[in-house]
Design a protein around this nucleic acid. Structure first.
Length: 271
DNA sequence: ACTGGCTCCTGAGGGC
DNA sequence: TGCCCTCAGGAGCCAG
């Protein structure tokens, strides 16, 4: 579930509580996430001070002198800060217990998330090494999108959701960005002009920034570190609005499936 | 190299 | 009420 705004909201929420703290221990109740939580994490993270809390794509990185914990929330994951003694509930799979009595608690009903440990530069980890640019960073623009799309027949929406194109744009924000840019989600990526790709890059950045300001989008189970929802759901213009009038032209919004993912758009405004 | 499809898992919601 | 079906915010991996 979480896309970039939700992961970044989580990062900002935990950073002041976690940075500079020493990990007292790691409690793994259920190691069977997307990949098994490695024993090296429980062995090597305790005793380490967390020097930085970073985000790359939808991965959170907890950096220490000995290595980095690499955390992904998958579709249904969330992090909470709780008192260490707080009884664990269903799907509370892992606690990273800090030296001040607080715990970073990972809850993930579907277990599509992951928690890994890497000793080297985490950005060189195989899961991160091939990722495209950050959408809110300097390396993302229309020219890059246009160059990368050259000759590609894949629909623009799954192209935009491909983490080698740009990271952090998930199913909600892909539909929202294409609506804002006026581009039909099924249009072949290679058949979009440079000028329209520039609009798309700007639209993607804007929708992610707007969502970040609202604390992310809560559809069902996303919540921030304090347990509060994100408020961007009320600002979604097309996602989940099949049959409702387009906010721009009034035509009923449509839903199709692209790349096995629900896609929402206005057939009149998006070409 | 691209493309599309499958997969992991639990829970919510709708229809009957 | 209960049962069954479909769908869900990700993304790595595979076959063709």
């Amino acid at each position: 579930m979480p896309e970039l705004p939700e992961v970044e909201t989580t990062r900002r929420g935990i950073e002041p509580h976690v940075r500079g703290r020493v990990v007292a221990r790691v409690r793994v109740r259920e190691p069977r996430l997307r990949w098994r939580v490695p024993r090296s994490l429980s062995r090597e993270l305790p005793g380490q001070r967390i020097d930085a809390v970073r985000r790359r794509a939808k991965y959170l990185l907890l950096d220490t002198g000995a290595g980095s914990a690499l955390l992904h929330l998958g579709m249904s994951g969330s992090l909470r800060l709780v008192r260490e003694a707080m009884p664990a509930g269903p799907h509370d799979h892992v606690d990273i217990v800090l030296d001040n009595g607080w715990s970073l608690r990972l809850n993930d009903p579907r277990r599509f998330g992951s928690l890994l440990w890497t000793r080297g530069d985490p950005l060189e980890h195989p899961l991160l090494a091939g990722l495209g640019p950050e959408p809110l960073g300097a390396g993302f623009d229309g020219a890059g999108l246009h160059a990368r799309a050259r000759g590609r027949r894949v629909a623009i929406k799954p192209f935009l959701m491909d983490s080698r194109t740009v990271v952090g744009v998930g199913n909600i924000y892909a539909s929202e960005a294409l609506f804002r840019a006026g581009i039909h989600p099924a249009r072949a990526a290679g058949r979009i002009s440079l000028a329209r790709m520039e609009r798309l890059a700007a639209a993607a950045r804007e929708v992610l920034e707007d969502a970040l300001r609202a604390g992310g989008t809560t559809l069902r189970d996303y919540s921030d570190v304090e347990g509060a929802p994100g408020y961007f759901a009320q600002d979604l213009r097309v996602y989940g609005r099949e049959g409702l009038p387009c906010l721009r032209c009034g035509a009923p919004l449509r839903a199709i499936v692209l790349g096995q993912r629900s896609t929402y758009y206005c057939a009149r405004c998006q070409r």
